[in-house]
Design a protein around this nucleic acid. Sequence first.
DNA 1: TACCAGGTAAAAA
DNA 2: TTTTTACATGGT
Length: 263
Amino acid sequence: MGKGSTIVSVAQMGSPIRGTLEVRIAARGVELEAARSEARDLVRRMLGVTQDIRGFYRAFRNDVLLGETIRRFRGLRIAGSASLWEALVTAILSQQINLRFAYDIRRELALAFGRRATWDGETFVGFPRPEAIARQRKSTLRTFRLSRAKAVAIQGVARAFAGGSLREDEIARLSDEEAIEKMTAIVGVGRWTAEIALLRGLGRVDIFPAADLGVVKYLAQGLLGHKVRARESAMRRYSERWRPYRGLALVYAYAELARKRKS
DNA sequence: TACCAGGTAAAAA
DNA sequence: TTTTTACATGGT
């Protein structure tokens, strides 16, 4: 959402591969063209339409682990957040607790500090801006069932964005490793958090969070046949074969794991 | 009760 | 350099 008030609602028709997407924009106090352009960019990033999946398919259609999965989930991309800021906060909230709990807290933060817009009798709540979080006391943030470490981390990220020391457009110009280095300078943002933010926030297709529980446990045991949890270093080494699409490979591996769990 | 859940930082080995 | 430990909370 830009200045003023803009609501974007999206509906998909047809198959994920050959469907159409209807986007409705309700805007007040903004130029229609600007709102349209902003909405288009937002939808494109969240769907990951610019991710190079063709190159990924060409390179790995015969991959032992992913070949079949690629055909099964044709069209799947890395799902994106609306901003790097939102992706970073979501990643911090997701550290070491079950995701259901993390998303509960994210919703509560949005309800408390997010922007609101009403359209057609319905009220929509947006993710808070960095400034709205930056001005809260840590003790206030901790009432949202955050550990001291998470409150510090989220406040640190909020201040970095609000103060301009961290900017999405600057991070977007950096290489993966440079971007990780820049973000992990903030206390409470470790390598995993920075990697998830780049994957979900910027749709970086070669990011591989090797320490992720989903990688060292579920991928290692569920798809690679390990008896016990793998080491981060071992998974990072294993992922080398998927360059330069390690992030896309991971998303497809997770899709396959979810499918196996269901069946 | 104890352990696990898409970790991090600091201390200890 | 690698391995523990405390940290918050909810579910099983």
